[in-house]
Structures are given as C-alpha cells and as structure tokens.
Design a protein around this nucleic acid. Structure first.
Lengths: 192, 192
DNA sequence: GCGTTCATGTAACCTGTTACATGATTCT
DNA sequence: AGAATCATGTAACAGGTTACATGAACGC
C-alpha cells in the first residue's frame, strides 16, 4: 500500500510521468522508499482505477510521448487519511547482523572484507545526504523542515553504521582476537 | 534466500524444531531477521530438499510430537559460502519519512501523535536490547563479541531514532512553527 | 555503429503476511 | 469452562524483483 502513497506524495509537487517518478525515486522521496519502474507503472494503474490520480497523454515530437499523472481531490483526501493512521517503524533486518550472530559458523576473513566494503558505502552515502541537507539548511518553510528532518535520519543512519563498522573492524581484527581466529587455512579450503 | 541461512545459523546451536525456531526468532537471531512460523515451516522443507538439514521425529508422550532439524555438513558448507558473498546493507524504508517528506500534504497533528508513539516504542526496545547486551558484557569469546556487536547496532538504532523523535517533536511543535500550522480545523474535517 | 536517455509496459518469480485448520495438554 | 502453550502445516494474497519486450532520438 505504502508505495501508492509515496507516489501520491511525489504527485503533490505537480504532474509526473511514470518515468519521472522512477527517476525521482532515485533521489529525494526515494531515499525513504525505493521502487523499480515496473512496480511504479503497476501502482499508477491502481491509482488511476481508484481515481486518486488522472492520466493525460502529452504528445511530444522530439521524444516519445509521455503519460502524465496528476493527483485528484480524492487522492489528496486519501493521503490525509493515510497520515492519520499509525505507521510501523522499519525493523532491523540485515543478513550481515545474522552472520555476526552466528560468527562461529562463518568465514571471518570474508566478514572483515564485507565490513570494509560497507564502511566505504556508508561513508559515500553519508556524503551524498550531507550535500542534499546543506541545500535545506537555514530555511524555515514547513516543507523544508520536514525534508530536513527526514534527511537527518538518513544522515544519522549512515554515520552510525559507518562508525560502528570502524569499531567492529577493530574488535574483530586478528590482533584483537588473538588465538580465536577461526579462519580456515587455505590448504583445507582447496580440498573442499 | 537469507531466511534459509538465518535458520541454518539457528541450527548451528543444536537441533531445533520449527516451533523452536519460531520462538527463537522472537528473540536473539530474530532481532535481525524475523519470520512467521508459516514461512519457517516452508523454508525448513526447502532446507531438507537441499539436504542442508535433516529431519527427525521426536516422539513425546506428554506433548505433541516434534520434528527436529539438524544442520548437515552440506549445510555448514553453504553457510560458509554464503558468508563469502558480499551482503547488501538494509536501506532506509519508512513510510513515516515519506510523510515527513510530503509534510505539506498530510495531517500535522496526526504526525505529531505518531512521533510520540514512536518515541515511546524506541525507548522500550532500547531498554530491551540493553538488558540482552548486559548479559554479554565483559566476555571475550568470539561468539559473544559477534553477538555483542550485532546487539550494539540494535541499541544504537533505537537510541538514535528515539533521540531524533524528541528533536522532531520539538521542531514541529505548534510553538516552533508559529503560523505555519497546517492543521485542518475540525469543522472543515467534519464536512469531508 | 554503439551506448545512453527517453518512455512504457508485461510476465514470471520470490518473499512474506494473513487467515484457515487441527488437536492435545496444562493452568486458572 | 476457557485460555494458553505446544506443535504442525496449507492456501490465498500482497508486495517487490528480474527479465523480457519495443522503439525513437542523440551524441561519440
């Protein structure tokens, strides 16, 4: 259901085509709810069926035609109703943490490599969000306050994951673990 | 796929029935990967088909019989292989943040109520994780280090969300927003 | 000639949720 | 008598991903 509302939110900024929304979902709103174009077209169809949005074909000569969707009054009302229901926070769900939990049964070296890769990823994303955040600083328009708060979550999320990776790498380093290194010798692995 | 591995991790601690795993998934490993019993039974069937686990019926006189699953050598090997592949970090996906992003189109009062409810939830969960964490403190067994690090993520996650809720409530309070309060008067709503 | 961007869609599949279904024992 | 715990499963559906499919225009 939520994707439909996320699309409606995108439509409150003006008419958008499926293609537009797909691109938008790679930035802005999409930081908090991602979707592939295949799914977006599917959901746009449902929005049309419910009359929460209306479609209009825009004829273009230089590019392929586009089908623009606009939010209707019923759509706005649906958004309002949606916001009045309690939302469920996203729960932690990460196979990496599952691996950590079962650390004795997995390859420690691979885990370390994974940690390193993640650390880099989180730092990259943090920088990305920070750039977006800077653009909203010092504004006190309601919309900007909201978007800033949302981005703040993203910033903290990446920052804390990044920092945690550093600590984890430290605690799981061969030096810190001493003799408890469970890495399977290469010779044994080659036989398997 | 990941659920199968999460189940295998649970089985590394010893033979477990579907029922056991379902309960386990409400604590420990399940903090990082949740599943309903219906899904667990389905995945256990697949593990059996792949010979990553074997089933054995335990006859009980006082309680209904149980079917215990044990991890096989092939299962352990599958876990190893799995841990050698890069994992994708969980991306932020939260309809609440979508609402914040489209704050102009939603009911601010409802959003505030939602924030308050979430704040409480995060504090509760934080306390819960903290209790679990305490039990692992000061141990330097590899397994405990892993579980501690995993729990640390959960702790930080809840703490930061909780703190953020406080700041958000502050910034979105009627006093802070002044005239920008977009709440729809009750009279108008009653007509709709 | 080749890749990219623009633009829209369908089909098959996988994962996860909700609800249905059954039945014994133990506790209050 | 009724609720909770133990214990196993199936069926239908919802949400999301991957791959398939098509085709024009533009820059290198």
């Amino acid at each position: 259901m939520s994707l439909q509302y996320a699309i409606l939110i995108a439509l409150t900024e003006g008419p958008r085509s499926g293609y537009d929304i797909a691109k938008l979902f790679d930035q802005s709103v999409g930081f908090f709810w991602r979707a592939r174009h295949s799914q977006i077209y599917r959901e746009l169809g449902k929005l049309k069926d419910k009359a929460w949005a209306v479609a209009k074909e825009i004829v273009q000569s230089d590019k392929p035609n586009r089908i623009e969707f606009s939010i209707t009054e019923a759509g706005r009302e649906a958004l309002m109703q949606w916001s009045r229901q309690p939302t469920e926070p996203q729960e932690l769900k990460d196979d990496f943490l599952v691996q950590l939990y079962g650390i004795e049964a997995i390859d420690l070296d691979a885990l370390r490599a994974n940690l390193l890769a993640r650390q880099e990823r989180h730092r990259d994303l943090h920088a990305q969000y920070q750039a977006k955040y800077k653009l909203l600083e010092n504004s006190d328009i309601l919309g900007d306050i909201g978007r800033r708060l949302a981005l703040e979550v993203a910033l903290i999320y990446e920052r804390e994951w990044g920092d945690w990776c550093t600590r984890a790498l430290d605690q799981l380093s061969p030096e810190a673990l001493g003799s408890q290194n469970n890495v399977i010798p290469i010779e044994q692995e080659k036989r398997a």
